[in-house]
Amino acid sequence: MSEFTHFNEQGRARMVDISAKETTVRTAQAKTSIKLTEEIYQKITNHEIGKGDVLSVAQVAGIMAAKQTSSIIPMCHPIPIKGVDIAFQWNVNEHTYELMITSTVKTKGSTGVEMEALTSASITALTVYDMCKAVDKGMVIGPTYLVEKTGGKTGDFFRKEI
């Protein structure tokens, strides 16, 4: 296990100094899902939710979240986001309605974008929940997880599918 570097000499939290790290292209992809009712599925796909186009608004919220991650997660560095892509896929079975959300974030810098991808996916799902909660509050979000990350000193990571 690598040395944990988020503590200073006094044992207090600190933001890690990344000034000596190499600048490389770094990407991260995170996924989450939101399980919902058939009624919500129909309203989303038929653009009948009163607050607007759910997927468009959620997509913009996810992009904004990636750019603001360092504002809400204390030890995250503000980094120059070079790209954010959020994709949606419906998994509809006999009585199951699930929206899969994939967020891919890219930068060229000295620290990774895993937290930005995870935050982006999470906020996208929370926005879907917010826009649809008037129809039903029983929606379930998750699991949320890192699918892959590339670049940087620790190398690449690829999760075996959950």
Rank of each mutant, 00 (worst) to 15 (best):
N46F: 07
A28I: 07
E22L: 08
I73Y: 01
S33T: 11
T69I: 09
T24Y: 01
T69R: 04
G52Q: 11
A20T: 15
A13C: 02
R26W: 02
K35N: 14
S71P: 00
K67H: 13
A30P: 09
G52H: 06
R12H: 12
Y41L: 07
I63V: 09
S33H: 10
S19P: 04
R26F: 07
M15G: 04
E9N: 13
E38L: 07
T27L: 06
M75C: 03
G50R: 14
R14M: 15
Q10Y: 05
Q29H: 02
L55M: 10
E22H: 10
H47M: 07
E9F: 00
E9P: 00
K51E: 13
M15H: 02
K31W: 07
A58R: 03
A13W: 01
N8R: 03
G62I: 03
Q42L: 14
A30M: 11
M64C: 10
R14W: 00
V57T: 14
A58N: 03
T45A: 04
S19T: 15
R12K: 14
E9A: 15
I40C: 06
I40A: 08
S33L: 03
Q59I: 01
A61Q: 01
Q42P: 08
Y41W: 12
A66H: 06
K67T: 07
A65P: 03
T32P: 09
I63N: 01
T24F: 00
A30L: 13
